[in-house]
Design a binder for these strands. Structure first.
Length: 247
DNA sequence: AACCGTCTCAACCGCTCATGT
DNA sequence: TACATGAGCGGTTGAGACGGT
């Protein structure tokens, strides 16, 4: 028995949103706030699936969205984060204020992927492509060397986590996040594994800490975790793993 | 001007995860 | 513990924009 559909498909609109629908959605969220997406369409008088409303709000209508082209800094950050996290677009988006996972995913697929390929870098593994020209490989090496990011051992292990054994990945659609080659992701990246000053001073590796924090982001700076409220209600903990232990 | 191929990106789909009962 | 439900994620699709011929 499959799960029930998220909405009554027969009575919902699909496709592009109209201006009126946008206005209704924005007005409703301004009045009642985000959340309870399932019941929102009815409450807002929209013939849309709750999922569709959420997506429209998150990706297009949210007032804090940054529109326009990606900057070079954003490009570089996306590449760095992708080399660490793979296709975890929501995690990557979390480090880019005003950008959405969908936007970053699209940008990656349409621009960055091509840019990396042109530089002789495999966009999935972030390693030089086999059979590439020496010049391409050389430029790849330069770029990889440039991708030095302060990382803790925990985050580095996260980045270098080997893929699950084939028998455990019966999931057809979700196995493409990064290294599918059987090798650890970007094992020869020049990752600076030294603990950043703040993290070194305040977060010994035995303590659970926010991943954003370990990536060098302070609270309020892209990271939405609450630095002044540590604990399960504040940080989303990322506990460092023991040697040989993987997520 | 018309056609065609390519590109972009908003939106959808199917799935997993998190949470409540 | 098992199940139901809602939220969120990542891959994919398709309509419209754009550029070349």
């Amino acid at each position: 028995m499959g799960r029930s559909p998220c909405c009554e498909k027969a009575h919902t609109n699909k496709g592009a949103w109209t201006k009126e629908e946008d206005e209704r959605l924005v007005a409703h969220i301004r009045a009642h706030g985000e959340g309870c997406w399932r019941s929102l369409p009815k409450a807002a008088g929209l013939l849309r699936c709750g999922k569709s409303c959420r997506l429209r709000w998150m990706n297009y209508l949210r007032p804090d969205l940054k529109r326009g082209n990606f900057t070079d800094d954003e490009d570089e950050l996306i590449i760095r984060l992708h080399s660490l996290l793979g296709n975890k677009w929501s995690l990557i988006a979390g480090q880019l204020p005003g950008r959405t996972d969908n936007e970053i995913k699209n940008y990656w697929n349409t621009h960055i992927k091509r840019k990396l390929l042109a530089s002789g870098i495999d966009p999935q593994t972030h390693r030089p492509l086999r059979g590439g020209t020496e010049a391409a490989a050389g430029s790849a090496a330069v770029q990889l060397q440039h991708m030095t990011i302060p990382l803790t051992t925990a985050a580095a292990r996260f980045a270098a986590k080997p893929p699950p054994p084939p028998e455990s990945s019966n999931d057809s659609g979700r196995s493409s996040s990064g290294a599918s080659t059987g090798e650890p992701r970007c094992p020869d990246l020049n990752l600076d594994l030294s603990v950043g000053p703040a993290a070194a001073a305040e977060t010994p590796t035995s303590q659970p800490v926010c991943l954003c924090y370990r990536l060098g982001l302070r609270a309020g700076e892209a990271c939405s975790c609450q630095a002044d409220n540590p604990g399960p209600q504040g940080f989303r903990y990322f506990r460092p793993l023991e040697q040989g232990q993987y997520l």
